[in-house]
Design a binder for these strands. Structure first.
Lengths: 148, 148
DNA sequence: GTCGATGCAAAAAATTTGCAAGTAA
DNA sequence: TTACTTGCAAATTTTTTGCATCGAC
């Protein structure tokens, strides 16, 4: 029995409406493992729902970032990239970024080991800076095999 | 005795020239602890060297990112932010980002386990993906005290 | 002297905004 | 019904490019 999606409550709590465009966009994000740009999401939505405009994509993504539902990244190719912070299908992962060609590798190695440390660090930081921390991201920068 | 600056070799190796604008920009970056935007750097340079144009700022920053000398970040306010990857004065630090107001707190309170994990992960990832890793960054996302 | 680097103006992209019309709650 | 959302078009903002000149090596 598929109850309401996991993000439903976040919309409710913040007083935001669950509209069709928003559901579609979240659907796309939850079905991909890529780092999509606003335009790529727009094109993907557009195939099935041509009525949805690019503006709505931008506004929705802004909202989702705001609610902590998606991450917004800049991998250096001039456009922002978006991905869900969590989902059933999507494992928590971090990034390995080539600073020369911009290639991005998702890695999930050691996430478990990291988790323990991050929980601890998160706790310390939360108290010290009075921050309510929800997520974290690790980026390693370097040169990929082809660019060395 | 102040020999050539630490980044000198990186320029040489890559066949890039050490010009006045580049030295000025690096000087500004090494003297601040802020996350400056291209325009802020431009304004800062412009005070003392009005001849340097905004285009040069962008081109120089692009080069510095390319060489691994500066980090380029998107903290969500619509413009890219830059900071040195390392320097004598600048301690390695990570970021705590408020997803509501965009406030960014630098923290340097690393715990020993944190360091250990990163060294370990870096080593393994380097081998597994054949990446030459130079740097890493950790971002914690959440709500700051004022935005909770 | 060479060839990379720079400045200016113009162009290109990406993202945001105004406003009337649509629609979830 | 009420106010949040949306689409479209226009505007804004950031970043990039073309080209003649300049300057580091």
């Amino acid at each position: 029995m598929p109850g309401p999606p996991w993000w439903y409550g976040k919309f409710q709590n913040a007083g935001h409406r669950v509209t069709l465009p928003r559901q579609i966009i979240l659907g796309i994000l939850s079905r991909t493992s890529k780092h999509l740009s606003a335009e790529e999401i727009y094109l993907s939505v557009h195939r099935t729902y041509p009525a949805v405009g690019l503006t709505t994509i931008y506004r929705t993504l802004q909202l989702l970032v705001h609610l902590g539902i998606v991450f917004k990244f800049d991998f250096g190719d001039g456009r922002s990239r978006y991905e869900l912070t969590a989902s059933q299908k999507q494992k928590h992962h971090h990034h390995l970024i080539c600073r020369r060609c911009g290639r991005v590798i998702d890695y999930t190695d050691f996430i478990e080991e990291e988790r323990e440390v991050f929980n601890k660090v998160e706790k310390i930081l939360s108290q010290k800076y009075n921050f309510k921390i929800n997520n974290h991201q690790v980026h390693f920068y370097g040169l990929c095999d082809k660019c060395q």
